[in-house]
Design a protein around this nucleic acid. Sequence first.
DNA 1: CAACGGTTCAACCGGTTAGTTGACAACTCC
DNA 2: GGAGTTGTCAACTAACCGGTTGAACCGTTG
Lengths: 189, 189
Amino acid sequence: MNILRDSDATRARLLAAAADEFAAHGIAGARVDRIAIAANANKAQIYHYFGSKEALFEAVFDTLVAKVVQDIPIDVHDLPGYAATLADGYDSHPEVARLATWYRLEYATNRSPSPQIVSSLREKVDSIARAQTEGVLPTHYAPGTLLALILHVAALWAATGPEFSAAIRPPARQQRRDIVADAVRRILT
Amino acid sequence: MNILRDSDATRARLLAAAADEFAAHGIAGARVDRIAIAANANKAQIYHYFGSKEALFEAVFDTLVAKVVQDIPIDVHDLPGYAATLADGYDSHPEVARLATWYRLEYATNRSPSPQIVSSLREKVDSIARAQTEGVLPTHYAPGTLLALILHVAALWAATGPEFSAAIRPPARQQRRDIVADAVRRILT
DNA sequence: CAACGGTTCAACCGGTTAGTTGACAACTCC
DNA sequence: GGAGTTGTCAACTAACCGGTTGAACCGTTG
């Protein structure tokens, strides 16, 4: 076991620093040098381990998607709770939401959709469809539409700009959670 | 009246080209040369008329916000219709939604909120609050929360990535409109 | 210990980019 | 028609940035 030289640790530090940098500035705005410095590493190591700035972003994004998908399984018997958990996650980890947005804006253009995400979505759509035929969920929305609505409402506060906080007294965290859960409940009614 | 030399026309062409460029690539990703070429103008003119790349973005954004705010007034007696109109707007002008997202991600960070937007939001919040005391709107959400929910749901399809279209058969335009209106109706019930 | 392979790093490179300059062209007004 | 003003543009520059290079460094293995 090596302490001073540890490629896995360096990789991990690089990945974490890159997540911060990409979340803050996007792909075009991110600076490879800043990532290297923040990771207490060298710029050349980024190219050694990941190949390019874009590939580094992919690695960051894939890691993140894998974690979120794995950590927050859908529960068709409690979709309001599912949405609330997601909203909570966005609340405690704003980088996740920002990264996802930047993926959509900067990366997904001119690119085929990520199979990882597509299959995860299909899975969720299927379980909603099943729950609908079993009568567990209402059928006034197609399963895909329902999923889109729920995921989108869960991102409510993550997509709300600073202008909002200036215009109204923003709700506290617990309230934000409850509002999301409540809105989903109404959508399901 | 001048034909060959017309500063207003040049300004307008620059603004339009910049809107496209910023919508497609964001602030960091936008290229000043591309904007100049697309506007059949010269790069120096951009700096002459707007001063800097960021100032150009501000001009684009302000113009756009002014147009949207002016063109789509809120109607507290028909919030589902209001949301549907907004959703329709996002559908026909995807640049608007992208520009707004980029504003939030790239520009709004480390900057005081735009007074223009704040006052427009306050106005809307006030009319919702008034409608609530008059019994026109339900009171289970605070006025600001209700506005946030409606505006957010209106952006449903604009925030849906390509992965979704790959996972499900996406609804047609008229259906997208109806889904938004319907979701808002449920949220209000 | 010597050869080896993975790891780390400072310095470097070439293309790109935001922003500048200074001259020229067209229109206005006297 | 010429003086002054405004609009246009090609060429320039200084800095920046993604990516490369080559050598030093260090633990391992035989």
